[in-house]
Write a protein that binds this DNA or RNA. Sequence first.
DNA 1: GTCTATACACGGATAGAC
DNA 2: GTCTATCCGTGTATAGAC
Lengths: 194, 194
Amino acid sequence: MARTTGSHSDITGPRVRAAALRLFARGGYAAVSMRAIAAEVGVQAGALYNYTPDKQSLLFDLMQAHMTDLLAETPQDPSRSALQQLQDFVAFHIRFHADRPDEVFIAYMELRNLTEENFAVIERLRRDYEDRLETILRAGVASGDFSVADTKIVTLAIIAMLTGVNTWYRPGGRLSLDEVVAQYWDMVRKAVTA
Amino acid sequence: MARTTGSHSDITGPRVRAAALRLFARGGYAAVSMRAIAAEVGVQAGALYNYTPDKQSLLFDLMQAHMTDLLAETPQDPSRSALQQLQDFVAFHIRFHADRPDEVFIAYMELRNLTEENFAVIERLRRDYEDRLETILRAGVASGDFSVADTKIVTLAIIAMLTGVNTWYRPGGRLSLDEVVAQYWDMVRKAVTA
DNA sequence: GTCTATACACGGATAGAC
DNA sequence: GTCTATCCGTGTATAGAC
């Protein structure tokens, strides 16, 4: 009501980020120009700088938001058995990533295009996520449910395997997400139990 | 002897490719300029065009050579049991990829920077490699050695898991390559057997 | 085969009008 | 808040001298 005519910051801002997300995922950060992002939004290039100080911040904000969401939604319930927690983690990881293919693609492919400081922030969040899984594996080893020689390696192996789903899974494809989750859980369960 | 003075095509050519490999892996294809490649080699930018028609061919040649080597060296011995063949594949994949971190990084990260035609060639080679593994899994299922619901999914899961080694393995690190191979083989074996 | 010089397009970012 | 116009650096690729 008190809004100035022509003020669209609350609409245009999210649209800028959505356009950057789409284009970065499709063409890569370095290959996408600010002019291309502006065109996708339907404004001129100069207008973008009302919403981001520079192109780098656009990339960093997308990646940071993605990692923060990931950590916020990761299931954590120490009252459940290690096996149940691991199953929860596998199902969550696959579903969360399948829902956000663009964010996931950027989070893995554009790390090297972050400045040193921004990279350190994202890397820390990534390690925090890995630690969630390793904590589960350690609990399972302690309880005797899991037979795992090196929890760090198994952590990285499981995450790599699960994230790989994003390279081929498409909604409406041969397998439903439920079937995908079931098959990966079968592999993970067999790999970590005695 | 009959060589013209100043002719270094047999020396400079490989050096151009080596420089491109290094720089593409470090900074990304789109972010690396022909001037930067020339500087790494120690020539001027224009001289590069004696060795490659354009930047795109430089990328494509690197990726195609990598995939061709991969397929040429993949162990194939149908006389061995499915379990033995799978073990051979796991050990080969880890060692081959650990030896060529730059090539592997480019092969995975720069697919989208290939032209449509070049992408199709590389993609075909990648599928040929996947088929090698799936053939082993199918043989194991047929012989009753493996318990696998969907050989295609397991193929992709195993390759993703094994290739993930390259994101953290460094020579001289906490684990030797022998130990890495042993641990991954343990996981793969358990995941595919009953 | 390599050099210098250059054509020509496009990049990120900013200034100032509206 | 958005626009037009622009600064200035850098990009790929080529031309022609040596």
